[in-house]
């Protein structure tokens, strides 16, 4: 009786979704061990994937806290980051110079785009997530035209035949691919830890956590928690929402640059289309709801979701033919979004 009670209390504290995914992860690692897969590599892969996706997940926090909801319009920030990344590549900038330039161009672009996108969202209060999804789709489609017609001349980037328009996938290995991934690496118990990448990700998490405890950060959270209260406390709810969307869009731009350097490729055209969904799923798995999210939700969610994706692929490959991990990703991420949207208050 007592055991049962404390078990159910534990389940409630951790939350059913995290419990299920945690158990699934344990199962994956057990299978990996039995199949004699290299554990050190699996763990390294999980860490890399978590950290390279983490900032995109973090981008969900400001909008949720400000009452705008999950930022399904994340591709708005992603394409801004891509423009920065492309310009750095066009000018043949390498290493950290290239990476830094990509950010230096991408961030202000994202701030402006976020401002416009935020103003749109302020006019459609109550349906931000629906509108955001389609804004994201439209921006991706619109930018596809730009990728084709943009003034890019670097032969490494444009189509070989025809000589104009960017390729689908650009290789970063000669530019600033893996700059973060190769910085400050060290071994812990035989596992290669991507020190630079993890540090970069965690420092953004820390900045966000600190920001949420500042005067403005708290005003933003209050505006999301109860707009009427915020207004009565002299907070401009619309401005706070705008600020949140700008922050989220900027984090989207930073996130894609970090993601791309780790992945080693820039993916253009329809690739950013569904960029928001894994991030949405990850933060929801971390225990956020559509109305409240914390940095802890980001860290837990990104770790669980992306570790699962990183280990599922090699493990399932040993068990059966074909790649089930893509199917698992779609089921888990969309299932998680559905779960959170229908519950409204999430697994807190």
């Amino acid at each position: 009786m007592d055991v049962r009670g404390s078990l159910s209390r534990f389940a409630q504290g951790v939350g059913i979704p995290r419990l299920l995914i945690g158990l699934f992860l344990v199962f994956l690692f057990v299978v990996a061990y039995i199949q004699k897969l290299p554990m050190a590599m699996l763990l390294n892969g999980a860490l890399v994937r978590t950290a390279m996706n983490g900032i995109l997940v973090l981008a969900m926090v400001p909008t949720i806290q400000a009452g705008v909801g999950l930022n399904f319009g994340l591709p708005v920030g992603v394409v801004c980051g891509l423009v920065g990344a492309l310009l750095a590549m066009e000018h043949n900038l390498r290493g950290f110079t290239g990476f830094g330039t990509a950010l230096a161009i991408g961030i202000p672009l994202a701030a402006v785009a976020g401002l416009l996108y935020g103003q749109l969202l302020n006019r459609v209060k109550g349906q931000e997530m629906m509108v955001g999804t389609y804004v994201g789709f439209s921006v991706v489609a619109g930018m596809s035209v730009f990728w084709l017609l943009g003034p890019f001349r670097n032969p490494e980037m444009i189509w070989v035949v025809g000589g104009s328009g960017l390729r689908y996938t650009l290789t970063l290995s000669n530019h600033y691919g893996h700059v973060l991934n190769q910085a400050l690496n060290f071994r812990l118990l035989g596992v290669l830890i991507p020190g630079g990448l993890v540090l970069f990700y965690l420092s953004f998490c820390l900045l966000m956590a600190v920001f949420l405890r500042t005067r403005v950060g708290m005003a933003m959270s209050a505006a999301g928690s109860n707009p009427a209260f915020a207004a009565a406390s002299g907070i401009s709810v619309d401005n706070m929402r705008l600020l949140a969307v700008v922050l989220s869009t900027v984090l989207g731009a930073v996130g894609i640059v970090v993601y791309a350097q780790s992945f080693g490729f820039l993916q253009l055209y329809v690739a950013p289309m569904f960029m928001a969904f894994p991030s949405v799923a990850a933060i929801l798995i971390g225990g956020a709801s559509t109305r409240r999210a914390s940095v802890l939700n980001v860290i837990v969610g990104a770790l669980l979701f992306h570790t699962m994706l990183a280990t599922a692929l090699p493990v399932t490959r040993t068990l059966m033919e074909g790649d089930i991990s893509e199917v698992a990703r779609i089921i888990v991420s969309n299932g998680m979004i559905l779960y959170a949207l229908t519950r409204g208050r999430g697994g807190n």
Partner: peptide, 13 residues
């Protein structure tokens, strides 16, 4: 406020 729960408080804080 007369609307204590609506305007006066952040109920979940």
């Amino acid at each position: 406020s007369e609307d204590r729960r609506g305007v006066g408080l952040l109920l979940d804080e």
